[in-house]
């Protein structure tokens, strides 16, 4: 990984996506947002993100299923992935499927501020969380 770490965020709620995008950028990440997991494998193959943050409840394909599919895609096998959802994931086995498919953690959005997410991502990437980006950087 060279330079600014690149995060791909899959999140269908536009307000939620905007908050995390803004926060992560302020904490020094480069962020791309997908509103669903339909084109996830293609995006990963093409853009080669350093890390993926995947919402669970998504239109078209649910997050855990999208992760299982991703593991078979080019560049998707070893990509570090965080699941991010306000569902606990325990009632329907989604959390187990996500961990079996190699998710690093299942984070509950309500307890995950953008700053905390940035810290987790930095830890997973083996870097320290950058301090707030300088003014002028979005």
């Amino acid at each position: 990984m060279a330079g600014v770490p690149y995060v791909l965020l899959v999140e269908d709620d536009s307000a939620m996506a905007e908050m995390y995008r803004h926060g992560l950028e302020r904490y020094g990440f480069r962020v791309a947002v997908l509103p669903d997991a339909g084109g996830l494998n293609l995006s990963v193959e093409k853009d080669r993100p350093d890390i993926l943050v995947l919402d669970w409840e998504l239109p078209i394909v649910m997050g855990d299923e999208a992760l299982e599919r991703l593991r078979k895609a080019d560049g998707g096998r070893d990509l570090p992935v965080f699941m991010l959802s306000n569902f606990s994931g325990t009632g329907n086995g989604a959390i187990d499927r996500a961990f079996r498919a190699g998710a690093l953690a299942w984070l509950e959005k309500v307890h995950t501020t953008p700053a905390l997410l940035a810290t987790k991502l930095a830890e997973a990437l083996g870097t320290a969380r950058p301090d707030l980006a300088e003014e002028g950087i979005p």
């Binding site: 306000n86 959005k109 309500v110 501020t113 700053a115």
Partner: peptide
């Protein structure tokens, strides 16, 4: 909504 309120508040 709580997620957004907490997230923005911390920012």
């Amino acid at each position: 909504p709580l997620t957004l309120i907490r997230g923005y508040n911390s920012m």
